[in-house]
Simulated assay, not measured.
Amino acid sequence: MIRTVIIDDEARSRETIREMIRLYCSNAEVVAEAEDVRSGISVIRAQKPDLVILDIKMPDGSGFDLLRQIMPVDFRVIFVTAFEEYAIKAFKFNAVDYITKPVDPIELQVAIDRVSKIIETGNINNQLQKMMDGFGKPAPQDNKKIILKTADTIHVLEFDDILRCESDRNYTVFILENGERIMVSKSIKEYETVLEENNFCRIHQSHIINLAHLRKFKKDELICVLKDNSEIPVAYRKRDDLLKVLRNL
């Protein structure tokens, strides 16, 4: 049984996660809860849990502040955040998992199942430390990555590996330079900001392209041609935005 501590400043969020664990995660039990960094440290030291489900932003600091004060870490961590974009920027190591609010019970179950299958290798502290050291700092330009989570895999990709993204209702399909397609259960809107910060452009309600892989823009036909010769439609209302971006390249 995975001894679990929940640390979140929102009582309703703690209650929701606790109930989901009771209903969906027979391999875990909640042994304690805390509402901020200070009380969280006390609970962890008293309970010595196997797993901490940890909110990132709390009134008296962040989840990273808590971990810095309690190092070395000898338990697994699943971070919780209200912002997918925030998580994408923060998490670059698959030794640490994360879930987004509102918490999906299946996503929580998958994350806890992953924890139960992991054999500790002794290098978790180092990976956590690297992540915390880099948190809040811009990643080196040649080492920017994005995390994509599917049901059974955490994909760690460089932005340059992505040709484009397309919307499939409430899902987003990432098309990679090598032809691989990765479907994630998040809308394309949730990725728009972080992608546009990394040389992507939303040219249509259903399409975001990597400008590094753009070969031509057929202005009259409103078509972008990428390096794999795929032709992606440009919405008329996005035409001027795209031209402006291209002039500034």
Rank of each mutant, 00 (worst) to 15 (best):
D55S: 01
E120C: 08
F174C: 05
K149T: 12
T121G: 15
G134M: 12
V77C: 07
E180P: 00
I78F: 04
P72S: 10
K137N: 14
V73H: 08
M183A: 06
K89H: 13
F64I: 04
E84G: 06
Q69I: 00
T172G: 04
K89A: 11
K101E: 12
E190L: 10
M131R: 10
R169S: 15
I70H: 04
G136V: 06
P138W: 11
I188M: 11
E84T: 10
F159D: 05
K89S: 10
A139E: 15
Q109L: 08
E192I: 00
T100C: 13
M71S: 15
E85C: 09
P59E: 01
D113A: 11
A90V: 06
D104K: 13
I78N: 02
V184K: 04
I124C: 00
G136I: 07
G136N: 10
N125W: 10
E120V: 06
N94G: 03
D113F: 02
A95F: 11
M131K: 12
T150M: 05
I175H: 10
L163T: 07
I146N: 06
N125T: 14
G63P: 05
K57V: 04
V73S: 09
N170H: 14
V115F: 04
S185N: 10
T172D: 06
Y171D: 09
M131I: 11
K145A: 04
R76N: 10
E107M: 07
K144T: 10
K92P: 00
I146Y: 08
P59L: 02
A87S: 13
A139L: 13
D142R: 11
F91Q: 03
L148E: 06
G179S: 07
Q127A: 13
V103I: 15
A151I: 05
G179E: 08
D55V: 01
Q127K: 14
K101M: 08
M131F: 13
V115H: 03
E85Y: 05
I56F: 04
K117M: 11
F93R: 09
V77L: 07
